[in-house]
Design a protein around this nucleic acid. Structure first.
Length: 557
RNA sequence: GCGCCUGUAGCUCAGUUGGAUAGAGCAACGGACUUCUAAUCCGUAGGUCGCAGGUUCGAAUCCUGCCAGGCGUACCA
C-alpha cells in the first residue's frame, strides 16, 4: 500500500517538474509514514517541507502543486489534505484495504517477504564463543539476535550464510588442555596444584573423567606437551559438540563452522602478515610485530606477533576477515558482545589496510546480559566456572520464551536477566500473549470446520461485511507487516518484529474479546465466512513473524 | 584520563532513521468469564523525555558541554 502510494507521489513530482510547476532538482527521497494520529490520515509525507528551501517556495504551495499532479486513476486515495506546517496527509479509499487481505492470503508464508536484497550475498557471523566452556546467557542473546537477523535478511531476498568462528587455536585452548590434564592426573591419584589461570568449572572434571575412561593412564607416559595437546584437542571437540547441541536446542543452526586453526594450517595468517610486512603496514618494534592500525583510525598500533613469537588473536582475525572478503560476500555482519567493542577499530583498520571497503563489514555490538538472581547480581566467569548456561535457561524457561525475551529489546540496551523472575516470566511472558492469538484463531478455524465451513475463501461480498472501524483497523495493521520486516532488515534491528507482533496480538485480542459484536463463527453464514477470512489472515502474519524468530506457533494452548 | 553504549511513567522498555497531542507491558486501583480458550479484555492513575545551551518551520531523536550508570582502554580472549 505504502509502495503504491509512493509510486503515485513519485509520478506526481515528475509531472510537476516536466510541467514546469516546480523547478527541477534531483528527485528527493520520498518518506511516507503512518501518522500516530488517525485524523492525520493513513499515510503522511513531509516532502513539501523538505523541498521548501530548494524551491524557495512555501511548503503549503508546494504541497498543493504536488497534489494537483497526482494521477490517481485507480482511486487509491479517497482524500488528501495539507495540514500543519506543510504535511500532505493521504486517506486511502476503504475498499482498497481489502486488497491487503487478499494479498495476505495469496502470498501465505511469503507475505512480508520482499526483494530488496535479491542477488546479494550476506554473511552473518555470531556467537563464536571459544570452545573452552559451555555457552552462557549472554551468548544466548547474541544467538537469538543473529539468528533472527539472518532470517529477516533472508526474508528480504538476501542469500544468507550463518557462520560460527571457532577459536580452536591459541593460548586459551592450551590452558584448557592443561586444566583437563591436571584434573586427569588428580583422578589418577596425584595431588595437584591448580593454577590461578586454569578453568575451574565442573565440566573440566567431567572431561577429565572421560579421558580416563578412553585412554586409561596412557597419557602419563607422554611428554607434557603431547599430553596437553591431546587433552586440548579432545576437550575442545567435546565442548564444541556441546555448544552445537545447546544451540540446536535453542533453535539455532549454522551453515559454516569456521576453524581458526585452519587459518594457521593453510598458512593464511603467516602470508597475510608477510604481505603486510612487505608493505610496511606491519613493522617490528621491541622484538614484537606491530600493525599500523593507528594510521587507519585506531587509537594506537596493535601487536600481531608477540616477543615470544606467538601470534595474538588479532593476527588470525586479520586473516579471517581477509578470508571473508575473499569469499565474495556483498555484506559481512559481525555480531559481538559489547565487551569486544575495543576490537572494532582495529578490525576495521585491518580491513581498510588490506584494501577492502570497511563499510561492507558491519559490526553489531549486543549489550551485555546482566544476570541476576532475585534482584541480586550473579557474577559470571568461565574460568571460575560460575555461570548460568544457556542450556539451563532454555531447559527452565523454554526456548520460545527465552528467545522472545531476548528479542523484545533493542540489542543496544543492556538486559537484566533475573533467574528468579525467569520462571515466573515463563507464565507471564509476552511470547504467550502472541502465541495465544495463533491458538485462538486456530481454534476458531477448527470450530468453523466442524460447522461446515470447509474452505477459507474470498468473496466479493466481504467488503460490505467486514466494515467495522476496528476491522479496518486490523487490516491497516496487517498492511504494515511487510514494512516492519523491511525496516528491521535495513536497520538490522530484529526487535521490531517482536514489537510489531505484540501490537498485532493486542489488536486481535481486543477484537476477539467482544464476542457479542465480533463473533466469527455465527449463524450468519456469509458474515462468518468473511470474518474467517479476516482472522485467518492475522494467523498467517503471526505465524510468519514468529517463524522469523524461530518461535513456535501452537494450534492449542 | 580517553573511547564506545545507555539515561523516556514507580519498574522493564518502544518510539516509524528530525514530524503534528510521547506510547506499551509489569506493578497499583476499579470493573468484565452460562459465549469461537480469562495465558484474555475494558477503564483509572502515572511524564520538566538526565541537566544546560545550540541547530530550524519543528528536537526524546542532530551538535556542544556537563551529570550518572555500564563496558572497554594488554605483547588476554
Amino acid at each position: 500500500m505504502k509502495e503504491r502510494l509512493g509510486i503515485l507521489l513519485e509520478q506526481a513530482l515528475g509531472s510537476a517538474f516536466s510541467a514546469g510547476h516546480l523547478r527541477s532538482e534531483t528527485l528527493p527521497s520520498i518518506v511516507l509514514e503512518t501518522p500516530r494520529i488517525a485524523a492525520h490520515g493513513d499515510y503522511s509525507t513531509n516532502i513539501a517541507m523538505t523541498m521548501a528551501a530548494g524551491q524557495k517556495t512555501a511548503p503549503q504551495a508546494i504541497a498543493k502543486i504536488i497534489i494537483d499532479h497526482i494521477d490517481d486513476s485507480e482511486h487509491l486515495i479517497s482524500k488528501t489534505e495539507i495540514a500543519g506546517p506543510g504535511f500532505i496527509n493521504f486517506f486511502i479509499a476503504q475498499n482498497k484495504w481489502y486488497e491487503i487481505l487478499k494479498t495476505v492470503h495469496d502470498l501465505g508464508n511469503a507475505y512480508g517477504t520482499s526483494r530488496i536484497g535479491v542477488g546479494k550475498r550476506v554473511q552473518v557471523e555470531f556467537v563464536s564463543a571459544n570452545p573452552t566452556g559451555p555457552l552462557h546467557v549472554g551468548h544466548g542473546r547474541c544467538a537469538a539476535v543473529g539468528d533472527t537477523l539472518a532470517a529477516i535478511l533472508k526474508a528480504t531476498g538476501y542469500e544468507v550464510e550463518k557462520e560460527y568462528y571457532v577459536n580452536d587455536s591459541g593460548r586459551q585452548i592450551k590452558t584448557l588442555g592443561q586444566s583437563v590434564l591436571l584434573r586427569y592426573r588428580e583422578i589418577l591419584g596425584e595431588t595437584i596444584a591448580f593454577p590461578a589461570d586454569g578453568y575451574r568449572g565442573d565440566y573440566i572434571k567431567d572431561l577429565a573423567q572421560e579421558v580416563v575412561a578412553n585412554e586409561g593412564d596412557r597419557l602419563q607416559e607422554l611428554s607434557d606437551g603431547e599430553a596437553v595437546g591431546l587433552c586440548a584437542k579432545f576437550a575442545a571437540q567435546e565442548i564444541l559438540a556441546g555448544i552445537r547441541r545447546d544451540l540446536e536446542a535453542f533453535g539455532v543452526t549454522f551453515d559454516e563452522w569456521f576453524s581458526e586453526e585452519s587459518l594457521y594450517d593453510s598458512a593464511a595468517v603467516e602470508s597475510v602478515i608477510q604481505d603486510l610486512k612487505n608493505r610496511d603496514i606491519i613493522y617490528e618494534h621491541d622484538g614484537a610485530l606491530w600493525f599500523r592500525t593507528q594510521d587507519f583510525g585506531d587509537e594506537k598500533d596493535r601487536v600481531v606477533v608477540r616477543t615470544n613469537g606467538v601470534t595474538t588473536y588479532f593476527a588470525s582475525d586479520i586473516a579471517y576477515h581477509k578470508n571473508k572478503f575473499e569469499r565474495r560476500f556483498d555484506r559481512i555482519i559481525d555480531i559481538w558482545g559489547a565487551d569486544h567493542h575495543g576490537y572494532v577499530a582495529r578490525v576495521s583498520a585491518s580491513i581498510e589496510a588490506l584494501g577492502y571497503d570497511k563499510d561492507q563489514c558491519q559490526i553489531i555490538l549486543v549489550q551485555l546480559v546482566n544476570l541476576l538472581r532475585d534482584g541480586k547480581p550473579v557474577t559470571m566467569s568461565t574460568r571460575e566456572g560460575e555461570f548460568v548456561t544457556l542450556k539451563e535457561v532454555v531447559d527452565e524457561v523454554g526456548r520460545d520464551a527465552s528467545r522472545f525475551l531476548f528479542l523484545l529489546r533493542h540489542y543496544d540496551s543492556p538486559l537484566d536477566f533475573d533467574l528468579g523472575l525467569a520462571k515466573k516470566e515463563s507464565n507471564e511472558n509476552p511470547v504467550y500473549y502472541v502465541q495465544y492469538v495463533h491458538a485462538r484463531i486456530s481454534n476458531i478455524i477448527r470450530k468453523a470446520e466442524e460447522q461446515g465451513y470447509k474452505d477459507i475463501y474470498w468473496h466479493e461480498d466481504f467488503p460490505g461485511l467486514i466494515d467495522l472501524p476496528e476491522e479496518i483497523q486490523l487490516i491497516k495493521l496487517m498492511a504494515r507487516y511487510p514494512e516492519v520486516v523491511t525496516q528491521s532488515a535495513l536497520l538490522m534491528e530484529p526487535h521490531r518484529v517482536a514489537f510489531y507482533l505484540r501490537e498485532l496480538a493486542a489488536a486481535f485480542h481486543a477484537y476477539y474479546h467482544d464476542r457479542s459484536k465480533h463473533k466469527v463463527v455465527s449463524d450468519e453464514a456469509r458474515l462468518s465466512a468473511a470474518r474467517l477470512y479476516l482472522v485467518s489472515a492475522i494467523r498467517i502474519i503471526i505465524r510468519n513473524g514468529l517463524s522469523l524468530m524461530a518461535v513456535s506457533a501452537p494450534e492449542n494452548m
